[in-house]
Amino acid sequence: MEGWDRNTKSALTQIPLLSTRAGPRDGAAWTQRLKEEYRALIAYTSMNKAGDNDWFRIAAANPEGTRWEGTCWYVHNLRRYEFALQFDIPVTYPATAPEIELPQLDGKTHKMYRGGKICLTVHFKPLWAKNCPRFGIAHALCLGLAPWLAAEVPILVDSGMVKHKDDEASSTES
């Protein structure tokens, strides 16, 4: 667990691990995996709320559970910045992690691949590979998206690339 901050580490250890190695093309085994995903997400969300550290909403956007959509937010200088969040479960899941996208930030930062996919740290993929198939969506959010927001949102706000929605509204009114 080299390269991770203390909060990420302690959150990670509390998210339930998954056990079914199944992807979206695996029929009944995928349904089993989905149940495990939900259990982990429920536990992680409850934990965040209890710790007053609620920072995302996510739900399956199709009955098969292969597409997920929601929002995530980050508080910087006492103001909350919120972004739409989406990803598909890849056919090779869980061998490969979902590629998390923040479409509103596409083209606004170099720490992003085409299509608004966030650029993960060098530590993410090795840890995911080591723990396959025990890590799921909740782990990807905790290890991938949370550190990305913490690192990039302050830079995006301070450089003016991202404006708070209140400021945007007033500037369009005037």
Partner: peptide, 13 residues
């Protein structure tokens, strides 16, 4: 039950 789990997450959300 998958639907139960979905409802639980929806309620939290």
């Amino acid at each position: 039950d998958l639907e139960d789990l979905q409802r639980q997450l929806d309620a939290l959300n």
